[in-house]
Simulated assay, not measured.
Amino acid sequence: MHIVRYRRADDATPRVGVRTDGVVRSLPVASVAALLGARLADIQALTSEPGDVVDDARLLAPVDGATEVWAAGVTYLRSREARMEESSEADIYGRVYDAARPELFFKSAAWRVVVDGEPVAIRADSGLDVPEPELALVVNRFGEIAGYLVSNDMSSRSIEGENPLYLPQAKVYAGACALSAGIRPAWEVDGSDLPVAVRVTRDGVAVWTGTTSTARLKRPFADLVDYLFKADNFPAGAVLSTGTGLAPALDFTLREGDVVTITIDEVGELTNPVVVGREHFEFLRP
């Protein structure tokens, strides 16, 4: 089962439902943000009794309202190595990997998120760009992990590598955050050892592939969530992308026209074509 946002062909209003074996059924809740305002037990109870079948549902990004997307960095050894390879301040990444406090940063407002099938972007002023395949935690307002998503935390390695203080520009821009369409409930999946795979194709040929597992994540999920909630309130819940364990060598960069596919077993798949520039995302509106 996946919790989804959808829109019917004859109704412009986004709605919430559950999708099982390709069939979408409605839920009596106004938004995903409202759902994440509830306790985990209440979310589980509500989604266990869906309503009518929706025949013409178009799946939307799985976040809305005031829900924010955040991300963690340098949580896998491979990420530490990649950041140190690209950076003029390599020691910073070695220190944060071993520190008690994780690196956390804001990634996207809900309305800026793209979903499966929609484009992701590379910046026109960046020369080295990569996808970052990640498992994302869907957390309710009480800090309980309600589910999981596939995340692509698009990144400009050249901009961040030039100066770590440029990280917001390397990470936060139009088309930089993609999430899979359905939230896999946490009560159905053990997230501690999920295979993660990425494939980038160019003119139909795979030019970069990689695999890892969430078992290689250095920091427990609960630790990342605890730090996110230490000094802020999330009344509509939050999505927290847990960092990547996959990074290509420095001689690889994405190009316009590439297609990125990320798969996380038991969670879902996310496929997005690559474009350059913000003009491709004028369809996104708050």
Rank of each mutant, 00 (worst) to 15 (best):
M1C: 14
H2A: 11
D11G: 10
V18Q: 15
R19F: 01
R25S: 07
L35M: 12
A45D: 12
A57E: 10
D64C: 01
D64Q: 04
T75F: 01
L77W: 09
R78K: 14
S79W: 05
E81G: 05
E81C: 07
A82T: 02
E85P: 00
E86A: 14
R95H: 13
Y97L: 02
Y97H: 13
D98T: 08
R101K: 14
L104Q: 00
F106H: 13
S126G: 15
G127D: 15
D129W: 04
E134N: 06
N140G: 12
N140C: 12
F142M: 06
G143T: 09
A146P: 02
G147C: 05
D153K: 06
S155W: 07
S155A: 15
S155R: 02
S156W: 06
I159Y: 03
G161K: 04
L165C: 11
L165T: 13
V172K: 12
A176S: 15
C177T: 15
W187S: 14
V189P: 00
D193S: 14
V200Y: 10
V207D: 03
T209Q: 15
G210W: 08
T211Y: 02
T212M: 12
T214F: 04
T214L: 02
R216C: 10
T244K: 10
G245C: 09
A247S: 14
A247W: 12
P248W: 09
L250Y: 04
L250R: 14
F252S: 02
V259K: 07
I264M: 07
L284T: 09
